[in-house]
């Protein structure tokens, strides 16, 4: 999700919140007969008959409603779809590419290989990796699931080593790394060799 969409979410939530507060205060005050204190000509009774005949039954209304529906519908759908993260990346261009040829590497395969190397660390149950584009950043995302008894220091060293290897392989200065370590809920009983 991009920051812009998140900003729009916040702005519209604020706007709707303020509208609801004002509307709620008005409805509550009117219900208790107090609205006349701030608005002297507040109606004693709601009458929508006039609005129905001048707006809803006017000849221009169906067209306007249809246009409004299309515009609001498209806006709403765009807003909804904008929340779906688009994160996949194509093959990465390696340094050393020139006019005689382009060297490409599948970043996700490289990250997956790094994850497989990490999975061999003692106490690590499984690991997976891929390269994605996240908020304008090229990101090697590795997810590691470890046993509750894992030696974190050892794991941290293994992560450091493996991601350095990945960095060397991909050789992209704009690549960043993010390794999520998850701890399994229960220790998996497994044969141990001492």
């Amino acid at each position: 999700m991009s920051r812009r969409v998140l900003g729009l979410d916040r702005f519209l939530a604020l706007l709707l919140g303020l509208v609801l507060i004002a509307l709620g205060a008005a409805v509550g005050a009117w219900g208790l007969g107090q609205l006349t204190r701030v608005w002297a000509s507040a109606p004693e009774q709601i009458s929508t008959a006039g609005a129905t005949s001048t707006v809803l039954e006017a000849s221009w209304w169906p067209g306007a409603a249809a246009a409004g529906a299309v515009v609001l519908g498209l806006l709403g759908l765009w807003w909804l779809v904008a929340h779906v993260p688009r994160r996949s990346t194509g093959p990465l261009r390696l340094s050393g590419s020139d006019r005689s040829g382009t060297l490409l590497v599948d970043g996700s395969s490289a990250a997956q290989t790094a994850a497989e190397v990490l999975a061999e660390t003692p106490g690590v149950r499984s690991a997976s990796g891929r390269v994605v584009s996240d908020r304008g950043q090229l990101l090697a995302e590795i997810s590691v699931t470890a046993e509750p008894s894992v030696d974190l220091a050892e794991l941290a060293e293994a992560v450091e080593r493996t991601t350095a290897d990945l960095n060397t392989v991909l050789g992209r200065s704009d690549l960043r790394g993010r390794v999520a370590v998850r701890i399994a809920r229960r220790e998996r009983s497994q044969p141990r060799v001492h």
Binding site: L152, A153, L155, V159, E160, T163, R178, A180, R182
Partner: peptide, 9 residues
């Protein structure tokens, strides 16, 4: 986690 790898829990 300690180190510059960006590993976290």
């Amino acid at each position: 986690l300690r180190g510059s790898s960006g590993a976290h829990l």
